[in-house]
Computed example of a mutant assay.
Amino acid sequence: MACSSNEQFSIDKSMTLDLNGYSIGSIKEQSFVINKYGETTEVKQKNGTITNDSSESDKLSIPVFARQRVKLHLENMKLILNPNAGMMGYGLRIGNGDHNQAP
């Protein structure tokens, strides 16, 4: 089962997101943005698929964007991007900070 939205999902606290075999996505530039200024955030995403079908001109297509001070754990996950022709994208983008950690 899939769920797609015209919204961008923001995570600004430590949490576990268990999709339990489901898919979730967005048509915005990033489907999920993980960021909490000044604090380390630990996020686990597991058991599902995150998609991005961005159609915003001059934007990137990114299913998961971990910004600064993020400890991100991906377990049994698929990250799928389907940008429009000529657009660039990343399945996972880690950036905008010196303290990002990928276990």
Rank of each mutant, 00 (worst) to 15 (best):
A66F: 06
P103W: 09
G91T: 06
S5W: 15
C3R: 15
S57V: 15
N100C: 11
L19F: 09
L72Q: 06
P103H: 10
Q45P: 06
V43E: 05
K44T: 12
F32Y: 08
S55E: 13
Q68P: 10
I34V: 06
G48Y: 10
K59Y: 06
S57F: 11
P103N: 12
F65D: 00
L92Q: 08
G48W: 11
N100V: 01
N52Y: 05
L92I: 01
D58Y: 05
V33M: 14
L79R: 01
K36G: 05
K59V: 03
N76E: 13
E42Q: 13
G21W: 06
I50N: 00
S23K: 09
Q68V: 14
G25P: 13
D12V: 11
Y37P: 08
S31P: 09
A102F: 14
G38Y: 10
Q101S: 12
N100T: 00
R93N: 09
E29N: 02
L79K: 02
L92E: 02
L60M: 10
I11D: 01
E39H: 15
G38M: 09
R69T: 14
P63I: 04
S61V: 03
E42D: 15
I34P: 02
S23W: 11
F65Q: 00
I50Y: 02
N35P: 00
S55M: 12
N100M: 08
N100E: 04
I27M: 14
K59C: 02
P63D: 03
K59R: 07
D53K: 07
M15T: 15
G89F: 02
Y37H: 14
K44R: 14
L74R: 09
L92Y: 01
V43R: 01
N84E: 15
N76H: 11
S23C: 12
L60I: 07
L19V: 03
N20F: 14
D53N: 12
Y90S: 00
